[in-house]
């Protein structure tokens, strides 16, 4: 499986749903794009924990400590990229 198939529309939508579920209160659904900076949309480092756990459960992966940074959770596309790396 290549990362391009992993970051296809289905996965992107799934990630978007999780993002909205975890931090939806502070994010306007329509303004949420794949490249949107989640931190500037109100994602806090603690909310990242819930986001991370939900993504791990949905995609059956485990983020290593080295990936638990702002760079990983900055946007839907950066999350997808990391999921791609961990699934390969």
């Amino acid at each position: 499986m290549t990362s391009s198939t992993l970051t296809g529309p289905v996965e992107m939508d799934a990630i978007k749903e999780i993002v909205l579920e975890q931090i939806g209160r502070t994010i306007d659904r329509d303004s949420l794009q794949e490249q949107s900076d989640l931190y500037s949309l109100g994602l806090t480092s603690l909310a990242t924990v819930g986001l991370m756990l939900a993504i791990e459960e949905r995609f059956d992966i485990e983020f290593p400590e080295s990936m638990l940074g702002r760079a990983t959770f900055r946007s839907i596309s950066s999350i997808a990229e990391c999921i791609g790396k961990l699934s390969n």
Binding site: L46, T48, V49, M52, L53, E62, F63, P64, E65, L68
Partner: peptide
């Protein structure tokens, strides 16, 4: 409480 939350994600 913060540590309790972070420990959910801590891997090392």
């Amino acid at each position: 409480k913060l540590n309790a939350t972070m420990l959910l994600a801590h891997r090392e």
